[in-house]
Write a protein that binds this DNA or RNA. Structure first.
Lengths: 253, 253
DNA sequence: CGTTTTATTGACTGGAATCAATGTTGGTGG
DNA sequence: CCACCAACATTGATTCCAGTCAATAAAACG
């Protein structure tokens, strides 16, 4: 595998946009990646007989680090290896809207589905893996399995956004929060990151507020009510929940 | 050009899904289509020297006609030629959420970006043009201009949905309605369907309500205030507006 | 023409925002 | 090691935007 410095020169976009982000020396973390089989990585990296190995560049970033600012994504393509990130935009009055959260295995396709007004920030310390846009494009066009998986991801993305919009339009505070948690749970579940009825949960209440269009104060009240009713509890970065109750709250309409 | 009946047999999906929808006998309405140059149609239909002509099937549907029910879109691919339609889903309690409105020149790509829980309904009498999925796919892969235009559409779609979600999360009634109108205006403008500061507007207030997550009663009040303040007026299917004032309302945050 | 559908207006209610105070935790540096 | 500070969470009091209920008017339609 190429070193990080070599990749910077090989890429068609300077990876120096990642200034201030640490570079990992781990020779091949993908070999032991726990979410690989659930990720687009799997079909992308696994080369058929005639395809060459894809160039990869693993990097790390600290909590709160901006991975890119508004409109600066360009044609970068990368996968989240571990940790959490989120996509957001800020309004003129300073308020923040969080569009969605990214977890291990999620892909960010600058070249194919940019959101012009949104930035990306690390929620926890994260590691991610950057690819070379042109190589990814070639792989998608030449490898039918990669093409199919890519199309599937292109379909899932607007479908999720549509569901989010519907939730925001027609749900009250409790429903919105429950739906956000349920949605995260489903995605974590597929990656084997849910133990029994709990999972690691690095969001602050302000993140929940900005993702659901509520105020932190009202999120606190609502989660307080959830705790009292045994729907869920949030302690020390860990979320514990009663799935049946949570579904009842989230699907009231 | 093939007749409608011939196309039904040629298509890889039975067009009989359009049961109850009238078939147009107009031999080639695309020649005089006023929005063609602004639509994906343009790059799709215009064949390069070696490409064969695409199979097309023009159809009409009456106001309120369901073009397809939830999950029934399948791999159909078609363009709206004229008239308006909208995509919506219904909640268990009967309430409706309208995701977006489709106007002349808009494409619906069943095979590439389906919204599983959404249906499509004609808002006015409409004419649309159905294509054969496999032919469209081939054209996209073989014709670079078609590929680029298609990618651009795939990028614009989630970006628009993200903007909608942000609006629903953080805007009040006046802002949401103003943003909806502004967004429609921009799209109609590009297609030359805006005269001075007015355009044909077939939405009922209940449609505005269901697209913005408000009640019809509150939409009526808000539009009443808009009328009083000279922001916009809605009469007899025609919307008249003051663009400067409308922008001031829509971009308050 | 009667019958829906749609729009308007008023009175009242309620959910979430706002303003504000207090508590809790964790990190940082003297 | 402790004092301090910043970030985060909780709780109460109050306000306000939008929902609900209801009545009426006005189109649109068949």
């Amino acid at each position: 595998m190429l070193s990080s410095a070599a990749v910077i020169q090989a890429g068609d976009r300077p990876v120096t946009a990642l200034r201030g982000v640490g570079s990992s020396e781990n020779p091949s973390p993908c070999e032991t990646c726990s979410v690989r089989k659930e990720s687009f990585c799997n079909v992308l990296i696994r080369s058929s007989v005639q395809s060459p190995t894809l160039t990869q560049c693993h990097e790390t970033a600290a909590r709160r680090k901006m991975l890119f600012e508004t409109e600066a994504l360009g044609e970068r393509v990368f996968a989240i290896c571990n940790g959490w990130a989120f996509r957001f935009r800020r309004f003129e009055d300073g308020r923040r809207y969080i569009l969605n959260f990214l977890i291990a295995g999620d892909f960010v396709f600058g070249a194919f589905s940019d959101y012009p007004a949104f930035s990306l920030q690390a929620l926890t310390d994260i590691r991610f893996c950057e690819f070379v846009h042109t190589e990814v494009k070639t792989r998608i066009l030449e490898e039918p399995r990669a093409y199919d998986a890519w199309i599937e991801a292109r379909i899932a993305e607007p479908a999720e956004l549509a569901a989010t919009a519907a939730s925001l339009a027609h749900s009250n505070a409790a429903e919105r929060i429950a739906q956000l948690i349920l949605h995260l749970r489903d995605r974590l579940e597929r990656r084997g990151m849910v133990q029994n009825e709990s999972f690691a949960f690095p969001l602050r209440q302000s993140h929940i507020a900005d993702a659901t269009g509520l105020t932190p104060v009202h999120v606190s009240r609502t989660i307080g009510a959830f705790r009292k009713d045994g729907v869920l509890a949030l302690d020390d970065g860990k979320l514990t929940f009663n799935l049946a109750k949570l579904r009842r709250v989230g699907n009231r309409r």
